[in-house]
Amino acid sequence: MSRKKGQEKIFEIKWKTDLPYRYSIGKLAVKFFEELKKNKKIYGSKCPKCGKVNFPPRAVCADCFVEMTLSDMVELPPKGTLEGFTVVNYPFVDPQTGGMRPFPYGYALLKLDGADTYTMHFVNETDYTKLKVGQRVEAVFKEEREGNMGDIPYFKVIKEEE
């Protein structure tokens, strides 16, 4: 908590605490993380009725309400396009860690090639003048993967031959 000019110093008690809880991610996400960890592959889910390809994979088509199963999962390339971007340049406590989220950082809404839905992720560019809508990006994989989203720490900006 910040102290404003003219305010007297306040008495503070600071602590960090673990808040563990279980969250069921579903069968499709389990397959996604297994493939990510073992094979560096990205899987989405394709609606068997309308053909919409979802990334992140989801178990029910938001348009048709049709359930998707493991056999509806499709591999997607690690490349995609920025639909929107920003450079986050303000301080806040990250509930994932209990500490401050490092900033500035590139943050984007992107679509993988072959996917019909968007995802949000980090981008390795903190100069907003160097980003544009339509910018091509590619997933960067960690060498030692653990089966979580940290295995793709960010998407990197790429240039491609026309």
């Binding site: 920003t86 986050v88 806040f92 943050y107 809404l109 949000m120 989203m149």
Partner: peptide, 23 residues
């Protein structure tokens, strides 16, 4: 799983929105 790691509260998505709207 999918959103918390990169989400920056309300302002991050509102910034994305503003940029897309402008573009």
């Amino acid at each position: 799983v999918w959103e918390r790691p990169s989400l920056a509260g309300a302002l991050g998505p509102l910034a994305l929105m503003a940029g897309m709207y402008s573009a």
